[in-house]
């Protein structure tokens, strides 16, 4: 078991590793909603080519962070750099470099899957033949080609996640942000997404993933960062953190964010 106070000793990200190019750099990132501070002075660096699992309990500030980093929400304070470009100063250039699968999917419900991918591809100003080829391939890989005339509104939840991921990939992003991509997805669709993400990591794409499914994080990620109450409490290479903690990711995570609550004397009416 690792005590949160001990964790502070290895919060400095990748301190022992040879400096690698940085894909994402957050400096003093803060977001307030009235008096409530959702993200509090967050500093984080993500190495290029790494697969970061961004973890935290519900309401910790994960989605708020990812929304700010991808330009879906304005930060109250702080700076965001993606591949050495400032998001505030060069939003168009940054958007060309990133792909995003947000938690609340940004889909045009009344387009078909192919139409939506074409739309996104053209928004990224890709060549017409490139869009056609990639759309066909993405629909095939995501197994979405069976119903070409179906509108997105008719898609199941898993299909919507897959089309959103396909749209995030069509312009060949160098950094990919995924907010809970496995939530509500069946085992078959999850396998497709996992395989795809592994292949992308092998090809050098930096991936920033939030997920509540720790088995997936353990299997896919090279690094993790854990946030609680809007503050970063630990970050670093996954193997290193696990070795220091001497336990699996689930126990490590639960201990860090507040531990288990005893169930005795509760729900006394059941049974």
């Amino acid at each position: 078991m690792v005590n949160p106070s001990e964790v502070a000793q290895f919060t400095s990200p990748a301190s022992s590793v040879t400096p690698a190019p940085i894909a994402l750099r957050l400096r003093h990132l803060t977001r307030r909603f009235g008096d409530f501070v959702a993200v509090n002075n967050l500093n984080l660096e993500v190495r290029r080519g790494s697969f970061l699992g961004f973890l935290g309990p519900n309401g910790a500030g994960k989605s708020t962070t990812i929304k700010m980093v991808t330009g879906l929400l304005a930060p109250s304070q702080g700076q965001i750099e993606i591949l050495d470009r400032d998001l505030e100063a060069e939003p168009i250039a940054v958007k060309r470099l990133i792909g995003v699968v947000p938690e609340d999917l940004n889909l045009f419900d009344r387009l078909t899957g192919a139409e939506y991918l074409t739309f996104v591809g053209r928004m990224h100003e890709l060549e017409r033949h490139v869009i056609a080829e990639r759309t066909a391939e993405l629909l095939h890989v995501m197994e979405l080609e069976e119903k070409p005339k179906a509108l997105i509104i008719e898609y199941s939840h898993g299909m919507r996640k897959k089309i959103s991921l396909a749209a995030a990939l069509i312009h060949n992003p160098q950094v990919l942000f995924l907010d809970e991509p496995f939530e509500g997805v069946d085992a078959v669709a999850a396998r497709v997404i996992k395989n795809l993400l592994e292949r992308m990591r092998e090809r050098g794409v930096t991936i920033f993933l939030t997920s509540h499914i720790l088995e997936i994080v353990e299997r896919l990620c090279t690094d993790i960062a854990i946030i609680n109450h809007g503050r970063l409490i630990v970050s670093g290479p996954l193997d290193e953190l696990r070795a220091q903690a001497g336990t699996n990711l689930e126990d490590y995570f639960v201990n860090l964010v507040g531990g288990e609550r005893p169930l005795a004397d509760t729900l006394s009416w059941i049974g």
Binding site: G71, L72, P91, I92, N106, L107, R110, V120, E125, A167
Partner: peptide, 15 residues
Amino acid sequence: YDAAGFRLYLLVPIR
């Protein structure tokens, strides 16, 4: 009529 789709405009490089 864009509803959630509007957020896509925040993610793509369009002026």
